[in-house]
Simulated scan of single mutants.
Amino acid sequence: MAQSQHFTPSVDPADDPVDTVVSRMRALEAVLPERDGIAVFNGVYLAVTEAIGRRLDTGHFPDAEAAITLDVLFAERYLRVAEGGHAPACWRPLLQFRRHPGVRPLQFALCGINAHIGHDLALAVVDTCRTLGCEPAELEDEFEQVGDVLVSLEERIREELMPGPDLLQIADPLTHLLGAWSLERAREASWSAARALWALRGLPDLAEEFAHRLDAAVGLAGRMLLTPMPERADCCPRG
C-alpha cells in the first residue's frame, strides 16, 4: 500500500464514530500482554481518544464534524497497524522491539506517539481535507485543539511511566534520550508536512516521494527512541 493512500470513510456524528474507535482500542487492550509495546501505546492513545470524546460531548470543538473526521481518520492509521495491517516504516521499530526486555514502557509510549504524530497526523489532515472538501487552514483550530490534548497527556505519560529519581540518576542515557524528543516540535513539523502534502496534491509522484521520506525520517527517530537501556548493574559499575 502506498504510504500516501488516503482513507475516506463516511463520518456521521450520529453514528458515534469516536465510540467505535474507543471500542476497537479496548478490544486491543483486552488481548495484548500488558508489557507489549503496542499495548503500552494503545493505553495512552485510548486515554487521548476518550478525552477528545468528552470534549466533543461538551461542545468544546466549534466544528464537530471536522473534529470527528480528523480524529477518526487519524486513529484509523494506527488501528490498521495494531490490528495487523500494513505497517509504514514509522511503526516498524515499535513492532520489532515491542517485547524487548531492555526497552522501558515510557520509550514504547513515546515511540508510538512519534510515529502517530510525526507521520500519521500529517496524512490524516490531508485525508480530512479530501473527505470534507476543505483546505488545511480550515482545520487548523481542530488540529491545535487535538494537539493540546496530546500535549497535556504527554505530561501525564511522563509522570506515570518515567522511572523514579533514583533510577533516573542511574539511567542517565534514558534521561538524555527522552530530552532529545519533543511532542510540540513533532506536532509543528506534522502541520508543515500536511500543508506541503496538500500543496503537492496535483503532483502525485512528488507527493508520494515526500510522504515516503517523511515516513522514513520518523521511523529513524522512533528506532533511536527504542535504544535499549542498560540494567542497573551496568549503569553503576563499582570500583
Rank of each mutant, 00 (worst) to 15 (best):
V21N: 05
R104Q: 12
D63F: 04
C90E: 06
I38R: 01
D127H: 14
D71H: 09
I68T: 14
Q96T: 12
T58I: 05
R130P: 06
D36P: 03
H119R: 01
A39S: 09
G133Y: 03
V44H: 03
I38D: 03
L28C: 06
A89L: 10
P93D: 15
A82D: 02
R35M: 08
A82K: 00
L121I: 10
R98S: 03
A137F: 06
V149G: 01
I68P: 00
A51C: 04
H86C: 07
S23I: 06
A39K: 02
A39L: 03
M25L: 15
F143H: 06
G85C: 07
R80D: 14
E155H: 06
F97C: 13
S23Q: 13
E154Y: 00
G118C: 09
T20S: 09
D16E: 04
E135Q: 15
G133T: 09
H86G: 13
D63V: 08
L110G: 01
D36C: 08
A87S: 14
T58N: 02
T128S: 14
V125T: 12
L139T: 15
P105Y: 01
V103N: 04
P62L: 06
A66M: 12
D36I: 11
A89G: 09
G112Q: 01
L132M: 14
P33H: 12
A82R: 00
P136D: 10
L106F: 00
R24S: 14
A27G: 13
D15Y: 01
R80W: 09
R35E: 11
L150H: 00
I113V: 09
G133F: 03
E142T: 15
G43N: 11
G59L: 04
A89T: 15
E29Q: 14
D16I: 06
I52V: 15
Q107I: 07
L56G: 06
G43I: 10
E154V: 03
I117Q: 01
G118P: 07
E144N: 13
F61G: 04
A27Y: 01
V103Q: 01
E138G: 09
P17Y: 03
R104G: 02
W91N: 00
A122N: 10
N114G: 02
E138W: 02
F74Y: 13
D148G: 12
V18D: 13
T20I: 05
G133L: 09
R55F: 02
Q145R: 13
M25K: 03
D120I: 09
T58D: 07
A137I: 12
L123T: 05
A14I: 08
A89E: 15
C129T: 08
F61T: 11
I117T: 07
R156M: 05
Y45T: 05
D63N: 15
F143M: 06
D141R: 04
I117Y: 00
R92Y: 05
M25N: 09
V22E: 10
D16P: 03
M25S: 07
I52Y: 05
C134I: 11
